[in-house]
């Protein structure tokens, strides 16, 4: 049985304190009565009230949510297709360019992606707004989805697909009935990743949006440029809370699914 050594306990404690203390302070100060963020003047939830009465923030939150839902859904479909093409389609003309275009956006600085997309949208005369942000977010997050899904596709047993084809499935049916259920966890985590990337993005959204659509990060950025504000602390606390609940739920669900799958596989082996 392995134990913690004192060195490891110290490094982990310090490390996690560094990671979590700033966020804890943010949450604590969101309940501060005073507008001065660093002077504690008693417990209060008034900043949450002000936040919920602030139309601009609510509008921005709505725009952000719309963009995130649409872009992550389209990105999941396109990214899964791209992953399937990379892993299963074999050779075709322009394959190198294709895989290059999948991996390049992952390392591309956001300022460059944003600038280039803006120049494209202006070039073709597309009005900037929700649509252009969705197009931009879909493009970079489909690459993340495709990386996540393709790692699952390479690791699973291909003979299952072949068996389905031998038993008379069309390639599309084989994908829908065999491949998709197996890669589903990866597809779902790809969607979640795309969704959070879209929620978080400031730079690309700033470049590709117009006056009609302001996302939450753009709103937060312009508010905090001038300094710390208690409304933003309250907003951050809400966002941190949502993410924490979401991630913990997702990890419990996937853990249960993995346990159930392992049990099924064991049962199947016993029956053989």
């Amino acid at each position: 049985m392995r134990r913690f050594s004192w060195f490891n306990v110290t490094s982990l404690t310090l490390g996690f304190a560094f990671l979590y203390l700033p966020m804890v302070l943010l949450v604590v100060y969101s309940f501060n009565e005073s507008r001065l963020v660093t002077v504690w003047a008693g417990f209060s939830t008034k900043w949450y009230g002000e936040l919920l009465r602030n139309e601009e923030f609510l509008d921005a939150a709505w725009v952000t949510l719309k963009v995130a839902v649409f872009s992550s859904t389209i990105a999941t479909v396109l990214g899964t297709m791209a992953a399937y093409v990379l892993v299963r389609a074999g050779r075709f003309r322009g394959r190198t360019l294709f895989s290059g275009m999948i991996y390049a956006p992952l390392v591309m600085p956001e300022v460059i992606t944003g600038l280039s997309l803006l120049l494209l949208f202006i070039g073709i005369g597309l009005d900037r707004g929700v649509l252009t942000i969705v197009l931009a977010h879909t493009t970079f997050s489909m690459c993340y989805v495709s990386v996540v899904v393709s790692s699952r596709l390479t690791s699973f047993d291909r003979s299952l697909e072949e068996a389905a084809l031998d038993l008379g499935c069309s390639p599309f049916e084989a994908f829908r009935l065999v491949t998709l259920p197996i890669i589903a966890p990866a597809v779902i985590s790809g969607w979640l990743l795309a969704f959070t990337l879209s929620l978080d993005d400031l730079v690309i959204a700033s470049f590709t949006t117009g006056p009609s659509a302001t996302t939450l990060p753009i709103k937060i950025f312009s508010a905090v440029r001038l300094g710390v504000s208690p409304e933003i602390n309250a907003l951050s606390t809400l966002l941190i809370g949502i993410v924490t609940v979401g991630v913990i739920t997702a990890s419990i669900v996937t853990k249960r699914a993995a346990v159930a799958q392992a049990r099924d596989e064991q049962a199947a082996e016993r029956n053989e």
């Binding site: 700033p22 966020m23 978080d200 400031l202 905090v224 710390v228 951050s236 966002l239 979401g246």
Partner: peptide, 11 residues
């Protein structure tokens, strides 16, 4: 998973 912007802002 939490917003990059918020993590920078917290400092």
């Amino acid at each position: 998973w939490t917003s990059f912007l918020i993590r920078v802002y917290s400092w």
